[in-house]
Design a protein around this nucleic acid. Structure first.
Lengths: 222, 222
DNA sequence: GGTTTATGAATGAAAG
DNA sequence: CTTTCATTCATAAACC
């Protein structure tokens, strides 16, 4: 995590330990997990037929367990698989709607119509064709999905300069780790984390006086 | 999809310290903030070395201010960064515990060495110069996260999930569309999503007990 | 074979 | 804090 500059992930650690069984994906190229045909079929069945879009961790584990008889697989593979499929389905829907906004309603399926690199809009499934089970997307996104990509610069409460004698969190030029921080618990906005108001110009007129005690036990965790 | 030329993180990686000019945004994509190597390093140092898991708003501001010399950054980026890292670390822990309880899966968490850019855990911050005999804010015990139960119930949002409790996913023999899969949402581990940090093993979850007292300080607020 | 596409993996951002 | 969403990065697979 936290470094997406391409790091070849040369660790060779976890994914696909080594082609061991006859049900290694399709190819002995093991760097990245790739579902075996059976695994893929089952996953698709779960997703489309069983309409399981957001498996709980317990479900993920169980799915993983069941899929392991078809080949090496880990929880995270299942997790990502569902995440990706759902996300991409949603993305297609959004693009679909995007095309539709002109009112002209001429959607050219199958051809290169999409916005950027011309990937075709096709809400299709059954990519591998192994399953061929008829499945249908449910287009109901009743929830509030929208929310544009906001690049809005949040503004922290108007920037009143605090003149605390805060210890140098950053002592000098940050080549070393700064020393210790001080609380500087002067009159700031309490503890209640700016939870939502990043793009919202709330102005932060709500001053909260609170005493919070983060301690072990339940309090801290929650 | 399309793979745009990604910036190989080279950028020299370090210098440009005090210079307010060389902000290297690493990622060509403009929308979303991505930490520069230096920013990332510092953040990680704060998180791991300084065991700063929950920076206060003041600390966030200070961190942000200091990180700005390495590139564009806003408060919310710092905030989200900490929040995400903490959440994902915890999720991982929870997952781990989950697995242990279930006793079924052998996930190789914490398997291999973390491969990313090698965040150096040991820095010479012991000699920050300043004696730093300040009153530190976090009296962090090195205790493990006990993490009690929470018993929260899933209820995946008000969405259209057709999912009954005890959705039968895998009925029995795993060749067909299995049907019986109990969520078994007991066990207390609510729902922790694995999200990140699959290959990254970091331990060191410490509970920080801190007490912040916010005086009313209404004045400087607005 | 290089190029394009599909998709696994990661993480920033935000909602709940 | 917990979970989800969106976007991006990385890479295997598919396509000439």
């Amino acid at each position: 995590m936290e470094l997406q500059a391409q790091q070849p992930t040369e660790e060779g650690g976890s994914i696909q330990a080594a082609g061991s069984s006859a049900n290694t994906p399709i190819r002995p190229t093991n760097n990245q997990w790739t579902p075996t045909p059976d695994q893929l079929r089952i996953l698709q069945e779960l997703y489309y037929d069983k309409v399981l879009k957001c498996p709980t961790p317990e479900q993920i584990q169980e799915i993983c367990l069941n899929l392991q008889q078809y080949g090496q697989i880990e929880d995270k593979n299942v997790f990502f698989w569902f995440q990706n499929l759902k996300a991409r389905e949603r993305q297609k829907l959004r693009e679909f709607r995007n095309v539709r906004v002109g009112g002209s309603l001429d959607l050219n399926f199958g051809s290169t119509s999409s916005t950027d690199d011309g990937r075709s809009i096709d809400l299709n499934f059954g990519s591998t064709g192994s399953t061929s089970t008829d499945r249908s997307i449910d287009l109901n996104f009743g929830s509030r999905v929208g929310y544009g990509v906001d690049g809005s610069i949040m503004e922290q409460r108007g920037e009143y300069h605090q003149e605390i004698e805060t210890l140098p969190l950053f002592p000098m030029h940050g080549e070393n780790v700064f020393g210790n921080m001080k609380t500087t618990s002067e009159g700031g906005s309490g503890y209640g984390w700016y939870s939502g108001g990043w793009d919202d110009n709330n102005g932060g007129s709500c001053i909260s006086l609170e005493l919070s005690l983060n301690s072990s036990g339940a309090a801290d965790m929650a």
